[in-house]
Design a protein around this nucleic acid. Sequence first.
RNA 1: GGAACGUUAGCUCAGUUGGUUCAGAGCACCGCCUUGACAGGGCGGGGGUCGUAGGUUCGAGUCCUAUACUUCCA
Length: 891
Amino acid sequence: MELAKTYDPTALEEKWYRYWLEHKFFAAKPNPDKEPYCIVIPPPNVTGQLHMGHMLNNTIQDVLVRKARMEGKEACWVPGTDHASIATEAKVVAMLKEKGIEKRSISREKFLEYAWEWKEKYGGIILDQLKKLGASCDWDRTRFTMEPNLSEAVTEIFVALYKKGLIYRGVRMVNWDPQSRTALSDEEVHYKEVNAKLYYIKYPIAENGGKPLLTTGNQQPETRNYLIIATTRPETIMADTAVCINPNDERYRHLHSKKAIIPLINREVPIIEDKYVSMEFGTGCLKVTPAHDLNDYELGLKHKLPVIDILNEDGTLNEKAQLYVGMDRFAVRKQIVADLEHAGLLEKVEEYKSNVGYSERTNAVIEPKLSLQWFLKMEELAKPALDNVLNDSIQFHPPRFKNLYRSWMENIHNWTISRQLWWGHRIPAWYLPDGDFVVAESPEKALELARAKDSTVTASSLKQDEDVLDTWFSSWLWPISVFDGFKNPDNPDIKYFYPTNDLVTGFDIIFFWVARMIMAGYEFKGEKPFRNVYFTGMVRDKLGRKMSKQLGNSPNPLELIAQYGADGVRTGMLFSSPAGNDLLFDEKLCEQGSRFNNKIWNAFRLVKGWQVQPVRSENGCDVNAAIRWFEARFNEVLTELEDHYQKFRMSDALQTVYKLAWDDFCSWYLEMVKPEMGQPIEREVYEATVRFFEDILKVLHPFMPFITEEIWQQLQERKRGESICVAPYPQVNGTADQGILPEAATVFEAITQIRNLRNSRGLSPKEPLPLFIRTENVVAYQPFECIIQKLANISSIGFVTDKVADAASFIIKADELYVPLSMTLDAEKEREKLTKELEYARGFRESVLKKLGNERFVSNAKPEVVAAEKQKLADAEAKIKALEEGLSRLG
RNA sequence: GGAACGUUAGCUCAGUUGGUUCAGAGCACCGCCUUGACAGGGCGGGGGUCGUAGGUUCGAGUCCUAUACUUCCA
């Protein structure tokens, strides 16, 4: 069979994924004989498309799951999707709009019909995309946050928390998104610093006879009948219910207990005093607008000010504003500034940087707005969730996220859980005709409770709350609900798989999701939901910019897979993804990934092409040392690899297997054992090579599942139903001869030096050269003799006790190696080189001597360190001796 | 205003308890090498006073202080 010169993943990936599914390698069920290993997927938005962030965190999850599966654990990766209340509703609204249908013109029932239709149409796409990536999820366990079982769990939890007194309803200042016309939680608001303007507006003083009111600086007291207020939001002045000054502010002492008049609408408001007002900012006078600013609201409560809400749900002004009714808030801002100026009431305008809140979903500017919402008290829930992260019962990777987590948990606000949307879990509260309400699991139960309050209530007079719950109110239950842990708390699945092992997610949802899952875990199961949390950073483009549709800098993951293969893209993503740090994505990384695949593929072609014979041919090379070396080296790397995995250093783990496969296996091992062109290979060597190759494939498999399966299947005869997916992961071999490693290192150094010699002298690699070695440790070289000849193209090796004249030489530790050259040596150059080396070695010796001569060092440093220094000294001295001899020989 | 267990080669990053065989890796760059597993390859090479300024120490990329910049949070 002819193997292609380059690896082509396209057909193979589909073939193997189908094979894996057919044989149910990804299916997991409780098995008392095996250790469980479980990950629940961060459920992507049901109507979403795979983006680079998904690619990253799902690749990491797959690596972890596949490795656990090969280690013989019962590996369970639970997939699923999130109904994504706001995002999905926005998409459906947009779709309807295209059809010419306004959401508000149709009934809730009709809208939900459309929404479900939409979900059915697009809901499976993202999961199919994950399959293309090679994700080894147990697809039979696929869940959806709005499927009946999970929805029931949400309702039950709501009722339970209400009964416990943790959920309450009330009028509070919330973050209002005028575009999607719903309240948002604090976490859904992102603040950005923007260039704004600070408007200085004149407010006339009521009942004033024109006495001097305001003095500024060194100027003469001016006669003014107004005060000046600086504000960034002039459009809200109609909602002002007071003007506030600092009681210690000397400039305004005469204003105490006076009244000010709001410009344009001429409404009188009291001038109040509060230390909250900064005397430095603006003019020291603050307009108080309780309806449209959180701080003003608090101030209003304190001073019992009335609240005038002048905004509609969509951000336009209502009748209470008296002016500009029906206009959008930003249009009003422009207009009112013009009108104030026209009326001579605008003193000046300054440039100003201010922080403005934006909706993370719609990017609309958030309005602080008073409204009636449902809230969840968080303090009690946060306590165990905080403690168990701080004491590492749940470990964060990297640990620095503990700080961020702590500062949020210690200043936690109550969670606004109601949303003025239709797509989602409807709040299980029902209102009686008199406005009182009951909270219950079902309409029947609600009616029962309502009748206890008022016996005249009927099913039709009881009205369910129109709002739905925040999406995260179902997501926070995910690690429990995917195993039906609420409906059926003692079922075998949840008992076996909960708590799960690792959670892999972006740090941007640490509060939205991670923190709340931890709270839910302790509150509802009395146990953590997972043991480790691995935080990924954001995927950015190579210039460090966020990936966004507007910039068009976000590659299409499926196109990348088509171009580089899933294995190539997976390795590409992991090449540069330190935990918690942003990943600057460059397509070049995927290219590097696919080149790596090709390298492995060609190693396979080489091995596959060998003819095997039982014994070594007469002039064959003894490569036993190569086998012993690789065994030891593999062991060493495996230990290192395991350490990286333990610390969740995925990028380092990949880097480690990359070098093992490319450098150690391909560049050294295969070159060492490779027979001459057309010659057969000894059976023993062949078998060792295949064994090593299989081990390499196994450690590579979690990173590049497809190509490793393909090669593994071809490397030896396999039975139907076998797969590298479930092949046992290599274990550290205690009997390997680790002692050969330093010897091999010396040999490799020698080979490199000889190659270097050729290079620097322009000698062809094809021209064989003789080699003489002067060493006290001949046995270290002997097993490698033939290998040195092969790799450095050496015609013969001789061990000598004296210097060799007319030869290029180099020094490795205390050994001296000579390569006689037919061409004449440039003695001057040679001397220069040796002198340079000698200088360095002497300098080195000096520093070691200085250190060892220092009494404080010898007495204070650890004995190992001192011993190491002494060894360094001995090595350096041997080297210096050899160099000096070399120099004297040159004359 | 607070936090960073951020600032190391052109780029992206390692560097674990302070010890000049640690100043490293990958990519990029520069040489040389194609009938040979792979040119998507091989063999070599150049390149950084570890943000800046002080300090502690026999010794600092590693610890302390200040400062600049960057990022995150409010």
